[in-house]
Simulated assay, not measured.
Amino acid sequence: MELASESAEPIQDEVLEVLREAKVLARRFYRLTGKPLGVTGEVAEYEAATKLGLQLHAARQAGYDATETRDDGVVRIQIKGRCILNPMKIAGRMGGIDLRQPFDLVLLVLLDADFNAFAMYEANRAQVETALMLPGSKARNERGALAMRQFMAMARLRWARPSEQYKNS
């Protein structure tokens, strides 16, 4: 069952509440152990849903995690999240993107050390396909793992925490 259906709205609310609690636990766990709890992807989905009004979908939905209704119809969004301890030093790779699966956009949600989103970047499928097909990188070509900076350079800044500026530089 998709969480986005009208009859599932109470379920979506409960899921968002559980994700809010997971975010609190992830912060606490990291402060105690110095290790991530392993819920970054779920927290990223929560942040995207609450800040952008996306409709989350059932777990294991092939290709996309959420949808959004826009003027040109329903858009399927694959959400990738990364926790960045120092927002001025963004490095590393995103999780793998499988081009065999259906999606229209990829949304990269950057989380700070407190698991709060500070920026979200969005790129359409054509941009992502082009970047993944560039020759030269086994991680990119075989595993579909783009460098975050590469993704940010081709994407548009969809959302940023107020009073803060995060640029592609």
Rank of each mutant, 00 (worst) to 15 (best):
N124F: 05
A131N: 03
D112V: 00
M152I: 14
Y166D: 09
L16R: 08
F118Q: 05
M120K: 00
Y64V: 00
P10G: 10
S169E: 15
A48H: 02
E164G: 13
T130R: 06
R143Y: 14
G92D: 00
Q61G: 05
L132Y: 03
S5E: 11
E142G: 05
Q127W: 02
G92F: 13
N168M: 14
Y64T: 02
Q101S: 11
E14V: 08
A8P: 08
D114G: 07
P87M: 07
M148P: 04
Y46E: 07
G81R: 10
K35N: 08
L110K: 01
D112L: 01
A8R: 11
Q61C: 09
L85M: 11
A117D: 03
N116E: 12
T69L: 15
L157P: 02
R93I: 10
G136C: 08
F29A: 05
L52H: 05
C83T: 14
L107A: 03
S137D: 14
R28P: 03
E9I: 11
G73Y: 11
V128F: 11
G63N: 04
V74T: 12
E68S: 06
R161I: 01
P87C: 08
L32E: 07
A22Y: 09
Q61H: 07
Y166C: 11
M120D: 03
T69C: 12
E142C: 12
P10M: 12
F118L: 04
P162V: 03
L108P: 03
I79N: 00
A117P: 04
L52S: 06
R76N: 01
L134F: 15
R149T: 12
R100Y: 07
R28S: 11
T67A: 03
Q150A: 14
R28D: 02
L85D: 04
D72Y: 13
I11T: 15
A44S: 11
R20W: 09
R125N: 10
K80A: 00
F151T: 08
L56M: 04
G144S: 02
Q55V: 12
R31W: 11
A4V: 05
G34K: 06
L107T: 03
A147S: 00
A62N: 12
Q127E: 15
K89D: 05
S7M: 13
D112A: 05
T50A: 01
Q78A: 12
A22G: 13
M1I: 14
I97F: 10
T40W: 07
Y30D: 10
S5H: 13
V15G: 09
E164H: 13
S137C: 15
V128S: 08
R70H: 04
G81Y: 15
R158D: 04
A126K: 01
R93C: 06
D71A: 15
L37Y: 06
L32N: 02
T69K: 14
A139T: 14
E45M: 09
S163G: 04
M94E: 02
Y166L: 14
R149H: 01
A59L: 14
N116P: 01
D112N: 07
Q101Y: 07
D72P: 05
D114P: 02
G38Y: 00
R140Y: 08
E68R: 04
M133E: 10
A113Q: 06
Q61D: 09
